[in-house]
Simulated assay, not measured.
Amino acid sequence: MPVHVPSHYEVLGVPVTANESEIRRAYRRAARAHHPDHGGDVVEFRRVTLAFEVLSDPKARAAYDRSYFTSAPQRESPQPGSAAPTGAGTFTARAAPRSGGQRNLAGEPAVYVPPFAPGSVPLLPAEIAARAEHGVPRRRGLFGADARIQREQRTAALIRRRVLTAIPSARLLNGLRSPADSTHIAHAVLAGYRLALVDSMLVPRGNYAWDGEHLIHGSRVVAPPRLADQVRYFQNLFPELNVQGYILVQTPDEALHEPVIDVRRGAEGLIEPLNAAKFLRELTFFLSSGPQPNAVFIPALARLLTGLH
């Protein structure tokens, strides 16, 4: 099971929304508590110092946030036989076994992990963690921006109406930066310990064939968005989550069962494009069938929010 690596925010005990003065005050408190001259631990003091060096520099902090907390990580080699730090993320991304009479928790009210407690400083303020949707489609480039924004708005609206209402813990994030390059991920949906990355495409109505790489409609051959690499990147960044990718195929009239997509025998490879009906069915099942689907996992949500455009 992956050992939780505390972020710079956790080391200083501040939320990801903390301003410069809040970070400085938190550093002074932590430095006094862990300074070796006052009987503190050298390793912890080193962590506090590194955290302050990064978060007190606007450019370094922005780069750290863009990396989803993986640059200058707070890693220390564990001693043999040592336990994971308190609050360690030891969840693995596996579907919970179900017995015939076990109810699905996905429709239950959301619970927060770790819970908000009086006197504690969470990574996210409660009012931000409670929002079901974060971020908006952003204009990128000079050509086709309006079409992309319209498509992403339609995708966000579909998820908002049909997924967020069914799974109270689900959190929709629009416009994430890629951890690998300057590209973006249109949408991400986090519920429990599962994360879905979503992109979309717009095609005319009709019957299509999926051969594992392209959508084929008569003589028309269309390559879907390349989302598989981003899924791998995010899975490496969030080993405590199960990350999957989904490509929604839209038509101009927004019919749920259009276009009709026939999957050819042996078609494997890239992420299969789905019409709206199949997309909603598979996305909802994925998010609701994981362990603790009614949980809002605050550490993961906080990291994702720093990656918004």
Results as ranks from 00 to 15, higher is better:
3 V>K: 10
14 V>S: 08
23 I>N: 06
24 R>Y: 08
30 A>E: 13
35 H>R: 10
47 R>P: 07
52 F>N: 08
55 L>I: 12
64 Y>D: 00
65 D>S: 03
67 S>E: 02
68 Y>P: 00
74 Q>T: 07
78 P>C: 13
80 P>H: 09
82 S>L: 03
82 S>P: 00
89 G>T: 04
90 T>A: 15
102 Q>F: 07
110 A>G: 01
115 P>Q: 05
119 G>L: 05
119 G>K: 03
127 E>N: 13
129 A>V: 01
138 R>F: 15
140 R>M: 10
143 F>A: 14
146 D>N: 09
152 E>Y: 04
152 E>G: 04
153 Q>H: 10
170 A>I: 09
173 L>M: 12
173 L>S: 11
174 N>D: 07
178 S>R: 04
178 S>D: 08
184 H>F: 11
192 G>K: 07
200 S>T: 10
203 V>H: 05
206 G>S: 03
206 G>N: 05
210 W>V: 00
213 E>S: 03
226 R>H: 12
226 R>E: 10
234 F>T: 04
237 L>I: 12
240 E>W: 09
241 L>H: 03
243 V>T: 02
256 L>R: 06
258 E>F: 02
258 E>A: 13
261 I>G: 10
262 D>A: 04
262 D>P: 00
265 R>H: 09
272 E>P: 06
274 L>E: 13
275 N>H: 01
276 A>Q: 12
282 E>N: 11
284 T>P: 05
294 N>H: 14
301 L>S: 01
303 R>S: 13
